[in-house]
Every structure is written in C-alpha cells, then in structure tokens.
Simulated scan of single mutants.
Amino acid sequence: MALQETKYAVRFGNLAAQVHLTDKRKPLLLMLHGWQDNSGSFEPLVPSLEDHFDLVLPDWPGHGLSDHKGADSFYPFFDYVDDLHQLILQLGERDIYLVGHSLGALVASCWCAAFPERAKGLIMIEALGPMSELEDKVVERLRRGIDSRENMKGLRSLPSFEAALKLRRGINKVSFEDLTPLVSRGIQQVGTEWQWRHDAKLKTESVYRMSTEHAEHLVRGIRCPVLAIIGEDGYPELRGPLAKKRAEWFDNLTVESVAGTHHCHLQSQAETTALIKDFVTKLHLTQ
C-alpha cells in the first residue's frame, strides 16, 4: 500500500505528512526525521513495516512539504517538542511508539519525558537523548548563534536533480536509490534551476543549548522502554565514554549497533526494521 499525503493544522500552519493508516487497532509508529531531512528519510523502510504497523511520517516545520515558520522564528529546539505534541493530540487515543532519527530522536526523547503517561515506547536512531554542552560554553554559543543569524545566506541553487542527489550522497554515504525519496521531497525546480525546499533559517546556529545537567534530568524523566540504534561508523560521541555515562541515565534502555554512518537506518534497512518490529511488537503485547 502506498503512503498517502495529508496535512495536520498546528499553530504556525500545516505539517505535511505521509501516512499509512488503517481501520485496524495496530500500533502506530510516529517516525520523525532528522535536521534538514524530511519524511522521505524513512520511505525505504515502509515496505517492511506497513503490514505490522500504522505509520505517520511528518515533515518537521520548515522541512520537506511542511509550511515554514514566520520570519521571526529560527526554530528553537523546544518548539519542536511543542509541534510534536500538537500533532500527537490529533492522532487520538492510539498506542503511539516514537521512532526518531537524529533531531527527531532528540525531540522525541524530550516529549517522552514531558508526557510519560502517553509514551509507550521510544526508538532513537543515532541519538542518546537531547544534545547538551558544558555550562561554560553558554556565552560563546550565544554570540555564535546571533552572528550566524546576521550572516545568514540564502539556499543554494543547483543545476539539476542529479546534482542535488550527488551532493546528498557525498554527505550521507547512502545509495542513490535510497536517497531519492528524501531528495525528491526536499527539492523543487524553479525555472531552470533546482532549490532546496527547507527554510534557510534552519542553517543558523542555536543561540542556546541545554546543560548536561538539564539533559540528564530530561532523560531520567523518560519512563517508557527505549531502544537506541547506533551506527557503527556514526557520530563518535555516541560510542565513547560519554555515551556510556549517558546510557546510565535511562531507566530502561537497550542499545543495538548496526552497520553504517549517521543514516545507518538507510544503510542497514533489514537490521533496523527487524529491531523496530521486535521491540514494538513485544512492548505492544505486554501493555
């Protein structure tokens, strides 16, 4: 069954989403993509998941086919948590399991902490809770973030769709075939050129990042079981001593490694979908 296009009205405008919704009371996977990606990041996984679960694959604000926020919004991190909550309220009283990649996992982990009574299970791909940094970086972070807004550049134009695909291939190390849904949803033709759809303000730096202590309190607030899927060649920070310390913050965490870089879910699709199916199916049978 093909994914269907839909929109969810939230405070700032519309969130675009690809959905596979049935009348059956299946578990629902809410699949949340990463920064400057879009819901096409998960499309290659859908054939292996759609017989087992209902699926909702939204584009974050300013990404993919979703509306951009106003000129005064630079997409602060915690606003994503609010956007997610507005979407979840519209999905009704379903058993929702959150699957997040990178930014999507960071946001999902914070939502699970804030609303533990609703969170049934969390799957993080290339993440271990929200990003944080040492408190003594706060002044430098503030200045760099404001400077990045002052020096913000427009989106890059490309001569062809193939050029965009090659550019993303060079960054993400994913096959052209598996990158095509993501690039197709993230680019548009304007005259004779191609331009990215995402809001240029997304490329500015954050003016604030939470402290390690704040991140720990959020992670310790997560009550549902958590599965972390980490790429063997993904972000080094997710495989070192600090990652082991972070893992201890979780009440109920399972960590699995799969081959691949930061987009390991596209490089190890069979392993990733098998882990998702096993984790969610077992949870659903016991809840």
Rank of each mutant, 00 (worst) to 15 (best):
V139F: 07
Q90P: 00
L155S: 09
G121I: 01
L253E: 00
F77V: 01
R156K: 15
L49M: 11
R209W: 02
V258C: 01
L15T: 00
L15N: 02
Y208I: 08
F42Y: 08
I230K: 10
T192N: 14
G121E: 00
Q195V: 14
L98D: 00
S184F: 07
R118Q: 14
L275Q: 06
G70D: 10
C224V: 05
S160P: 02
L28H: 08
A247F: 05
L253V: 05
V183E: 07
H263W: 08
G191L: 10
E140R: 15
A105K: 07
A71W: 09
K201I: 01
G40A: 01
V107H: 06
H262L: 01
I146D: 12
A119T: 06
Q267L: 06
W60H: 13
W196P: 00
E177D: 14
W249L: 07
H33Y: 08
A243K: 11
L242D: 12
A259T: 12
L89P: 00
Y97P: 03
D83Q: 05
Q4A: 11
A259W: 03
S66F: 05
W111K: 13
L283S: 07
W35T: 01
A228I: 01
C224I: 08
V138C: 05
T192D: 15
M1K: 15
R197W: 03
A163M: 11
T286Y: 06
L242H: 11
H217Q: 15
R144G: 03
C110E: 09
L30R: 10
L15I: 04
G186D: 01
H263F: 08
T281P: 02
S48Y: 12
D178H: 14
D233Y: 10
P76W: 14
T273I: 03
A200D: 10
R168K: 14
W194H: 12
A247M: 14
P27R: 13
K137A: 10
A17L: 05
L3G: 06
G13F: 07
R144W: 06
L155K: 15
Y80A: 05
K24L: 13
R11W: 04
V255Q: 09
H262E: 06
L128Y: 08
L128N: 03
D37E: 14
F53P: 01
G154P: 06
A9Y: 09
D79T: 10
D83W: 02
V10T: 05
G100M: 02
L227G: 00
G104F: 03
T212W: 11
L202M: 12
V255W: 04
L28W: 06
K173L: 15
L15P: 01
D54I: 02
D82S: 11
F12N: 04
P27N: 09
R239A: 05
L89Q: 14
F115P: 03
R220E: 07
L32V: 04
